[in-house]
Amino acid sequence: MLIFNCPHCGVAAEETELSGGGEAHLKRFGPGCSDADFEGYLFTRENPKGVHFERWRHAFGCGKWFIAARDTVTLEVFGTYPAQTSEPPREIFDRISEKRPGWSWCNLSGEA
């Protein structure tokens, strides 16, 4: 069972207290975007074997959204942070890199 620490209320919540919201840090496109951009936003998702950033809502707690960094293979949780954050905090990136040498996240350097 996954256990996440809610960064808003501080509760260590089991996954049964949460609602999943899919992949985090997606670039959203507004009115007037191209059909290709909109299609990519709707249907193109990462499905990594390894580290993944996901949106979760503390549904049976404070009700707020947050992002969790976890490994999809081992279910190891590297940390959580508020959903309003545009990229992973440096301490989570460092925690992941310490356990997964050579790991990188393309958006951390501002690349697409």
Score class of each variant (00 low, 15 high):
residue 25 H to A: 09
residue 6 C to N: 00
residue 5 N to H: 09
residue 37 D to T: 09
residue 25 H to E: 15
residue 60 F to Y: 14
residue 39 E to M: 15
residue 23 E to T: 05
residue 33 C to H: 06
residue 16 T to C: 10
residue 42 L to P: 09
residue 53 F to E: 10
residue 25 H to K: 05
residue 19 S to Q: 14
residue 22 G to E: 04
residue 35 D to K: 15
residue 10 G to L: 02
residue 43 F to V: 13
residue 44 T to L: 15
residue 43 F to G: 12
residue 6 C to Q: 01
residue 7 P to D: 08
residue 57 R to K: 15
residue 12 A to N: 06
residue 37 D to F: 08
residue 18 L to W: 00
residue 46 E to K: 06
residue 19 S to N: 13
residue 45 R to E: 12
residue 23 E to H: 00
residue 57 R to D: 11
residue 45 R to S: 09
residue 33 C to F: 02
residue 21 G to C: 03
residue 10 G to V: 01
residue 40 G to A: 12
residue 47 N to T: 15
residue 32 G to E: 01
residue 8 H to G: 13
residue 9 C to E: 01
residue 7 P to G: 07
residue 12 A to K: 04
residue 33 C to D: 03
residue 4 F to Q: 07
residue 48 P to F: 00
residue 18 L to C: 14
residue 39 E to N: 14
residue 33 C to W: 00
residue 10 G to Y: 00
residue 36 A to T: 13
residue 36 A to R: 12
residue 17 E to H: 12
residue 5 N to E: 15
residue 21 G to M: 02
residue 9 C to S: 03
residue 58 H to Y: 01
residue 34 S to D: 08
residue 9 C to F: 00
residue 55 R to C: 12
residue 40 G to T: 08
residue 7 P to C: 05
residue 37 D to V: 08
residue 45 R to A: 09
residue 39 E to A: 14
